[in-house]
Design a protein around this nucleic acid. Structure first.
Lengths: 234, 234, 234, 234
DNA sequence: CATGAATGAGCTTTCATTCAT
DNA sequence: GATGAATGAAAGCTCATTCAT
């Protein structure tokens, strides 16, 4: 029947169109992520993002009302959105907390640090002071949840008697600093620097993890400090 | 006669001007340093630099052919080596290496981290990819000497039996990462972030130092790892 | 089967669509009238007109080749002649010409001034210079008949000895100006102005009517002017 | 003496430059006035104003921080700024109030109505609803002072027993409406309309003035209304 | 016929850079 | 040398118009 046929064709076409429409935001987000990471927020022109996504300038603003909104969407897509998943993964972890932390830090590199997503962190460090709105958004959507995630792990270790008791707020940075530093380093000096100064992420992280775990470890007789002046000849 | 008067004033100004002539580039560099560090390269307007240096926009371009050249000059000018001086200081240190490291890290904030000099590091992290030649310069003049300095301290600890044996190259980042991270953090999110997320540098560093020292400490029976899976319930 | 269902729905829609087909231009014109009057030609977006008419942007351009053409159609459509009807009404008026004029002016607000029809006048005043052909059309269809209508009333008053003798052509504007001014005012400053400057149409018109009638009244010894300089000490 | 000469040359140059700098805002305001009146606020491009003033786009924004500010400056220059002068002139008028009003209305045409300044009023009528900020500014700077000016004249007439007692607020529009109507008319249909419908400003105004004065005149036995139904054939 | 995704010219505004003075 | 008025190339964003579906 012709009617049926027309309906089918129309449906197919509509599907194809719909598929394209649904794909646009993703393509734009991907292009934006690349370019923001590559050149920074301010230095990335909207038209360039559009071109890389294979659409025109106007189309970009059809899907994202402004460059700032596009940036926020990039952050949500690549970072904020993943926290629940990570948290669930960590929540259901069965092994020792040392293993959990080791897993968290080493898997972070391949899952996040080595992807453009981590470039966002570098970008924010550079541009936060020029875009207070974005900074506030990033704090709310990334910094605080990320911090909480690490604090949860440290707490677990302390509750299970695996880690010594430390300040949670600043302790979390013991874990975060080496990771974020690596992410920034690779994106700034990573490729323009002599081999001597190159960091091999896996090796770098392995050393940091072990030192951190050493530093968090519970000791037989816990002292306030390992080697203070007074007890220098322990 | 007004003309005479104008001429006299002009002469006075010319004298003053001449006196200042050689000071100009320095004043411009100082102003540029402050502003680049504060707002980033792209967001700093040339006119603002000129105004802060007390000259006109045109004068800036008289001394530096472009904003980029000014930026390069700022970096070159400000990452000079205080390293020899520091190295001497550390070389002659008499106490335990723990104390030396503790001293190095806590004094670093007030002597370097909190000064515009550390702003350069943030600047370089942000802009390195846009200025590859500067990155190389920075590597040679800052990264490598700084690295060496920390490695010297770690080596001292290991030689004196205070620190456990660790990989020197990556171990140095155990010390550097928290410091550089702090320097960047304060300059990006430091002031635009809710009190919850604020970092108090002294407290932050205290926690990092102790954890690092804990992590470096020699233990009675040194094991490859503090809490590996196999021996999780030590 | 879903396909059948879709087809049925589509068929229903098609029927509805067909029924509406000839209504489309009218709905678009009505929506356009409202919006053009409300916001002016340039500030009215084509999509908004389409949305208010319940169709898509594309459909608008199916019926009108451009926004300009739509505007012209709106004007042409809406300045149709209610003049014959009015003229008949005024022709058969039985009372004094003062009453006729009072009736004409006070009823005008509710019957014309406060309706979209008067919005067209505002529109034309604003856009006439950009649409000369429309201006000519408007002159022929509105200005001249309207003028004639008022002149007829004034003539009646003069013929019946109720009004003093005045120039008909310019005298008609004594009546028209306050009305058209009100129509424009309400549509431009009417709603965006402080209460102090607001005009209450009925009160405004009442004052204008009485002053006009006072000004048209026949006086015992008609003088060329009430208080001219030459005869100031009459 | 060469120094003197140099000084003189420098002074001349500086003067020339200064003269140019001081002339710029005036040239821009004149160009803006013309174009705003000609094409409306929204339809006038900033670059076009600059070009007509003989400068580049950038220069416009050197003197006026935005298009809106430029518009406000145009209004201040051409309307608001003149009220004090007008008021003083009217305040010191010595003759009868009829003569004052006659003078005010007839001189208004040549001094304001026939100049581009009056185009501003037409412009505001068209664009007020789209630019609420400008509308508020215009109300404050033009409508209210203008209204006050007319009310002052009416009050003078009433106080001196020349005019009958009328509502001041709405009465002022008896005077304003014919003037503003003329200003708008000339600028919309004025030049695109058949000679039949053309208004000769002087004749138009003469008729309006006399009718208004007639309507305001104190009568021997003041009645509420000149020709009410009851007394239709007086 | 109808849709709405896509386009790109056009607008205001910014700012590094130039150059007459 | 020094100035700052002037420039014009971008950049973000809008919207009338087109056209594949």
């Amino acid at each position: 029947m012709p009617t049926t046929k027309l309906c089918e064709i129309a449906a197919t076409l509509r599907a194809k169109r719909a598929r394209r429409k649904e794909a646009r935001p993703g393509e734009l987000l991907a292009a934006a992520l690349e370019l923001f990471v590559e050149k920074g927020f301010a230095a990335t022109r909207a038209e360039e993002i559009a071109k890389r996504a294979g659409v025109s300038k106007g189309t970009l603003f059809l899907y994202f009302s402004s460059k700032e909104e596009l940036f926020k969407a990039v952050v949500r897509e690549n970072i904020s959105g993943r926290f629940p998943e990570w948290q669930a993964q960590f929540e259901s972890f069965e092994g020792s907390t040392s293993d959990l932390l080791r897993y968290a830090m080493t898997s972070w590199w391949s899952l996040v640090g080595d992807t453009p997503a981590a470039g966002i962190s570098k970008l924010m460090m550079s541009e936060a002071s020029n875009f207070p709105d974005l900074a506030a958004f990033y704090e709310r959507e990334v910094i605080e949840p990320g911090d909480a995630l690490i604090q949860r792990i440290l707490e677990r270790g302390m509750q299970r008697g695996e880690f010594r008791s430390i300040d949670l707020k600043y302790g979390s940075y013991t874990v975060l600093a080496p990771m974020l530093f690596l992410a920034m380093w690779k994106r700034s000096f990573g490729s323009n620097v002599s081999p001597r100064t190159q960091l091999v992420p896996e090796e770098y992280l392995a050393v940091q993890v072990e030192t951190i775990l050493y530093g968090l470890r519970v000791t037989p007789k816990q002292r306030s400090s390992p080697t203070s002046t007074q007890e220098s000849n322990q």
